[in-house]
Design a protein around this nucleic acid. Structure first.
Length: 857
RNA sequence: GGGCGCAUAGCUCAGCGGAAGAGCACUCGGUUUACACCCGAGCGGUCGCAGGUUCAAGUCCUGCUGCGCCCACCA
């Protein structure tokens, strides 16, 4: 069925159409990735949004694609090479990149096929990859523009370095965790000139070029300007004063290692200190001496041991828990490292990104998360964009003789001649993803797609990626597109958790594979489950039971449709005039009308969980459990009544299928085609409310029927009657309650039958003014009924007391809205009537003896 | 260290100023010709604790306790 949708071109956007545009670009999954629950959720929501808009007559573009995922992909291929006993260096750059492309062709993009199984209505004719020619052109174009505007610069800075991946990382690629370390205090120098500093990374003292104290710190004022000899190396460094030092922390004196700590680097810059690099890119000590050649984690204890031997350690705190950065890719402890890298100057871009949300050009749903967005945007550091990798967009900068530097645009030739070489680094993966909302539409060319589908209507992504990606798209899009925002709305969904709210992860072993659900429960049930759990910004707990419940619902829909079709439900003719419809017909039609409006509103607010709940409840409880049961009675009447009932059933089912299609696309399409004979629900019109004034009187009578039926069932259940057993009964008072027309329905739903001459009432109950006399053939369970009555009485008495207290409070009667007071008054009267009724019944029962239950001999 | 969020039925969560809700689980009953992936009837909550505002408080405010998340260049 999916392929038929695709082949029919339902998902192919037409930039030239006159319809209003609706566009979502897919958050590009990594080319290395396969579908996990997070994707399944995200895609279910995007598909629901696009399907509804398509049905509403929008020109919908949902654009698919993938991300080249620099480090992740390079790691995969390097691992593959390692299996062959080779490294990328054995291949050389060109051959390696070639190999990655081959890997992509052969094993990449598994996720695209998995998206088909989910039913994603994406426009495959517009599939993009961040390393496409077109997107590469976009990367080069914006790089050059930023470079020329002075917003990209190259500088020697302390950056996060992964000693395993051998590359720089941006701040967001570093994850902090509380690790155990040890904080040692070391005495530098001797005698009067001695000063004690604290450190967690003892090995870095090999690169110390100063000791700093706070200028106002009286303890050390006399030492400022003096020099001190470092332990172990004996190198002499100055003691300087700097405001950055916190006198409260540790000893109030800091060792300064400009080449291996970002703070120290800044201090070094302020005081013109030399930066001494003592470690190579693998994290191995390069400083000459006894520690040379040791890994940083071997060097640390070795240095500590040497210090201890010299009696330099005056205090140690162990374990000392502090935040340590790890590579988000391989979990290796990140090393701050001084190196020459490319940066984006984010301040002006971030300002624009903040403004676009502040002034409402882009709205964030749920709004509460906008605050986080601002926090991030207002405190962003410059973004390190160069990576020492081979897989990615190579930096379009050439270095020539005499330190000449040329940035090469997309249509320009690189400079020729001796000594010109291109920068070996590639760009951070997020650099190209940041262009995604417009590069995929053809930018920098001015294409019809770009005209039509930019800004994108809505971006759907997880709140965990708000900073990583959304902020960057905002920055680059506003910059490239003359301050026009990349999307009108950002909808942030939550994270998937297991049944107990724990994060799902492969290592934890609690991950549910969406493909498994697809196999066992089907795409419809999987999607409905995910949409049903999607409260804006809220995480959702998942377990097999939820999927089973959704599967049951899809099945219910199938069976209800089967019943409808078996009974000749149809949409072939317009609905009969209202006055020819029954109360039940009007009630369900009005209900559907209200449902359409509510579902619409909830869609507008991205309230997926609520709209699913509403549809679930209406379909199952209202339509199946009540209306279809009432319809059976009407169908049994035959004639015109049966004919009109077929039309009502057809109309309601038709509407429900349309409303459910965005979240349950497959089975609804099948059923709808059978019901209507039309081509496909995918391109059917979204329902609109009829605008008919709801018949509240009819709804009231149906509610009365429901109450009556439920009470009789409850009574029967108490009496231990089989649910299916027909019980002779006499109803009186139906006329005064205006329910005469519903006698047959009540009898059918409550399993009552017309009494014959031998009828003797052995039990009576009264509901809303109607007396029901039943012939239980003597088998009356007085005890059960007594128990029930006692319970009901207690509830009614509590109610009476509560309402009385309220009504007795003049301030309440005075100040509460009349409507509320009236409601309380009604409850009070109802409680009083109930007590009276129950009392009378109990009195009548007083003389009875149970013929059933425990009391029977 | 800074910021944010959450504590409601056994579980996962809605409700956010006027009668405590849903799904799942559980109990009882069921050959009711659409459906046992079902039908009917139930059981189950002093809405984390302590104060305060209000005629009225899961619902607003303050404090406390317990979780969770995000950010972070205190060595």
């Amino acid at each position: 069925m999916y392929q038929r949708w695709v082949d029919a071109g339902y998902f192919t956007a037409d930039a030239a159409s006159a319809k209003p545009a609706f566009c979502i670009v897919i958050p590009p999954p990594n080319v290395t990735g396969s579908l996990h629950m997070g994707h399944a959720l995200e895609h279910s929501l995007m598909d629901a949004l696009t399907r509804r808009r398509r049905m509403q007559g929008y020109e919908v573009l949902w654009l698919p694609g993938m991300d080249h995922a620099g480090i992740a992909t390079q790691n995969v291929v390097e691992r593959e090479l390692a299996g062959e006993g080779r490294s990328r260096h054995d291949l050389g750059r060109e051959a390696f990149v070639e190999r990655v492309w081959r890997w992509k062709a052969e094993s990449g993009g598994m996720i695209l096929n998995q998206m088909r199984r989910l039913g994603d209505g994406v426009d495959w004719s517009r599939e993009r990859f961040t390393m496409d020619a077109g997107l590469s052109r976009a990367v080069q174009t914006i790089f050059k523009r930023l470079y020329e505007d002075g917003l990209i610069y190259r500088a020697e800075r302390i950056i996060n370095w992964c000693p395993r991946c051998h590359t720089a990382l941006s701040d967001i690629e570093v994850e902090h965790s509380d690790d155990e370390g040890e904080l040692i205090s070391v005495r530098y120098g001797d005698g009067d000139g001695a000063i004690v500093v604290a450190t967690t990374r003892a090995e870095t003292m090999l690169g110390d070029t100063a000791v700093a104290v706070h200028p106002d710190d009286d303890r050390y004022r006399h030492l400022i300007g003096t020099e001190v000899a470092l332990p172990l190396t004996g190198r002499v460094v100055p003691i300087i004063a700097d405001d950055h030092v916190d006198p409260e922390f540790g000893t109030g004196a800091v060792k300064v290692t400009p080449a291996h700590d970002p703070n120290d680097f800044e201090i070094g810059r302020r005081h013109d200190l030399p930066a001494l690099t003592i470690m190579d890119e693998r994290g191995v000590i390069t400083a000459h001496g006894p520690f040379e050649g040791l890994d940083r984690f071997e060097a640390r204890p070795a240095v500590v041991a040497a210090l201890r031997e010299q009696g330099r350690i005056v205090a140690e705190k162990r374990p000392y828990v502090h935040a340590v950065g790890h590579c988000s890719r391989c979990d290796t402890v990140v090393e701050p490292r001084l190196s020459l890298q490319w940066f984006v100057k984010v301040a002006p871009l971030a300002k624009a990104a903040g403004d676009a949300v502040r002034d409402g050009r882009t709205t964030i749903h749920p709004a509460a998360l906008a605050q986080r967005y601002f926090d991030w945007v207002d405190n962003m550091h410059d973004w390190c964009i160069s990576r020492q990798l081979w897989w990615g967009h190579r930096i379009p900068v050439w270095y020539g003789p005499n330190e000449k530097v040329v940035c090469v645009g997309p249509d320009e030739q690189p400079p020729e001649g001796d000594g010109w070489e291109q920068d070996p680094d590639v760009l951070d993966t997020w650099f190209s993803s940041a262009l995604w909302p417009f590069s995929t539409l053809g930018w920098p060319s001015r294409t019809a797609d770009l005209d039509r589908f930019y800004p994108n209507t809505v971006l759907v992504t997880g709140y965990d990626i708000l900073f990583f990606w959304v902020v960057r798209m905002m920055m680059f899009a506003l910059y490239a597109m003359d301050d026009v925002q990349p999307f009108h709305h950002v909808y942030l969904h939550g994270l998937i958790r297991d049944a107990h709210g724990k994060k799902m992860s492969k290592s934890r072993g609690n991950a549910i594979d969406p493909l498994d659900w697809l196999d066992r429960y089907g795409a419809d049930a999987t999607r409905f489950t995910l949409a049903r759990g999607a409260n804006p910004g809220g995480d959702m707990a998942l377990a097999d039971e939820w999927a089973a419940g959704s599967r049951n619902f899809c099945n219910k829909l199938w069976n209800a449709s089967r019943f409808a079709l078996m009974n000749g439900a149809t949409v072939a003719q317009p609905l009969p005039a209202r006055d020819r419809l029954t109360d039940a017909d009007r009630w369900i039609l009005d209900g559907v009308d209200a449902l359409v409006s509510e579902v619409d509103q909830l869609f507008e607010d991205y309230q997926f969980a609520k709209l699913c709940e509403l549809l679930y409840h209406f379909t199952w409880d209202e339509f199946c459990d009540w209306y279809l049961e009432l319809a059976k009675v009407q169908l049994a009447e035959g004639g015109a009544r049966a004919d009109s009932t077929r039309l009502v059933v057809g109309h309601v089912l038709d509407t429900l299928l349309r409303l459910l299609h965005p979240v349950i696309p497959f089975v609804t399409d099948v059923l709808w085609k059978s019901l209507t004979g039309n081509e496909s629900l995918v391109i059917a019109a979204w329902p609109t409310a009829s605008g008919t004034e709801p018949d509240t009187a009819a709804a009231g009578r149906i509610a009365a029927v429901q109450r009556l039926v439920t009470e009789i069932r409850r009574f029967r259940s108490d009496q231990g009657l089989k649910p299916g057993q027909r019980v002779p009964a006499r109803l009186s008072g139906m006329d005064t309650a205006d329910l005469t027309a519903h006698a047959a329905a009540v009898a059918s739903l409550a399993r009552l039958e017309r009494p014959d001459e031998s009828f003797t009432a052995s039990a009576t109950l009264e509901v809303g003014g109607i007396t029901v006399e039943l012939d239980l053939s003597g088998a009356v369970d007085v005890e059960a009924e007594r128990k029930r009555l006692a319970k009901d009485l207690a509830a009614a008495e509590k109610e009476l007391a509560q309402t009385e207290a309220k009504l007795g409070n003049p301030q309440f009667v005075d100040r509460a809205p009349a409507e509320v007071v009236a409601k309380i008054k009604a409850r009070h009267e109802q409680a009083a009537a109930d007590i009276k009724r129950i009392g009378a019944r109990m009195e009548a029962l007083a003389g009875e003896r149970s013929l059933r239950g425990d009391g029977i001999a």
